[in-house]
Simulated scan of single mutants.
Amino acid sequence: MSLRDRWSLYLDLIRWDRPQGWLLLLWPTLMALWMAAGGFPGWHLLTVFTLGTILMRSAGCAVNDFADKDIDRHVERTAQRPLTSGRISVKEVVLIGVLLALVSFALVLTTNAYTVALSFGALAVTIVYPFTKRFFAMPQAVLGVAYAFGIPMAFTAVLNEIPPVVGWLLAGKLAWVIAYDTEYAMVDRNDDLKIGIRTSAITLGRFDVAGVMSLYAVCIACWWQAGQLTGMGWGYDLSLLVAAAQALYHYTLIKGRERLACFQAFRLNHWLGLTVWVGVVADLALRG
């Protein structure tokens, strides 16, 4: 195998051609960063959190594929992943994951001790998450915790403290992650039932669509309350209305529970996050 082919497999491992994954992490993290700073947080923190998000999501993909290597071969969507198909080794996957995490940690070291301490928690949950599919009825909740760590880290990097608004941002992020990852789980539900792993789509059963829409509502409500606590104005509120409209569109996609439509709904979620971040940026800019 040529070096070019091997690099192509490594990029496939970290889902380089599928940026939706790291965008789903990035937008709420940037929301928190802007709210904490009351505007543009500076190039240093913007670079640290943007690159750190991309790197840790990529490391998470490596961890996930390592944990699921024996499961993925039984799922139509994942059977041809590089590790599952035997085109790269377990040793390579572990090495890539460790290197990506170390580079991300080096970035965090340029912030402060509080943020560095939180990064250990983020890493721990990232490692644990893939294994919870074996025994936890709602592993998407664990994923939500892993994906939400960027929010308190953004506040500690700027303010060196975690104010009460972080709780509302975290609750909204957790609800959002469970909502969109349930859409994702609806794609693989038949395969997952055969294998015997746990997902929110299986746990919710015939209430899956209602559950997803309720979680979107909780997300919007929590983020609205976060806006109230930080003095956000009409620009932010407008972005939440647009985000709610996007969530309603997702209902038209997932109500029939068709695999491709559910996958499309999942892939569109990063636009919801972008919408709210733009609302934060615009509102703070107008206020300034």
Results as ranks from 00 to 15, higher is better:
169 L>Q: 01
193 L>I: 09
115 T>P: 10
135 F>W: 15
187 V>I: 09
148 A>R: 00
131 F>A: 13
159 L>T: 08
149 F>W: 15
118 L>D: 07
201 A>I: 02
141 A>F: 15
118 L>T: 07
98 V>L: 09
95 L>Q: 10
188 D>L: 09
195 I>W: 07
186 M>K: 00
165 V>I: 02
150 G>M: 09
104 S>E: 05
193 L>Q: 11
129 Y>N: 03
92 E>F: 09
159 L>C: 00
153 M>G: 05
160 N>M: 10
127 I>N: 01
202 I>V: 03
126 T>F: 02
107 L>G: 03
164 P>I: 05
127 I>K: 05
125 V>E: 02
193 L>T: 03
142 V>D: 00
208 D>K: 03
91 K>Y: 12
133 K>T: 08
91 K>T: 14
130 P>R: 10
95 L>H: 05
133 K>Q: 11
194 K>L: 15
197 I>G: 12
140 Q>S: 11
193 L>P: 08
175 A>L: 13
171 A>L: 14
186 M>V: 01
146 A>C: 10
150 G>C: 06
99 L>P: 02
96 I>L: 14
124 A>I: 10
168 W>Y: 10
186 M>L: 14
98 V>G: 06
178 I>Q: 01
215 L>F: 09
210 A>D: 10
114 Y>F: 15
107 L>A: 03
139 P>S: 11
144 G>D: 03
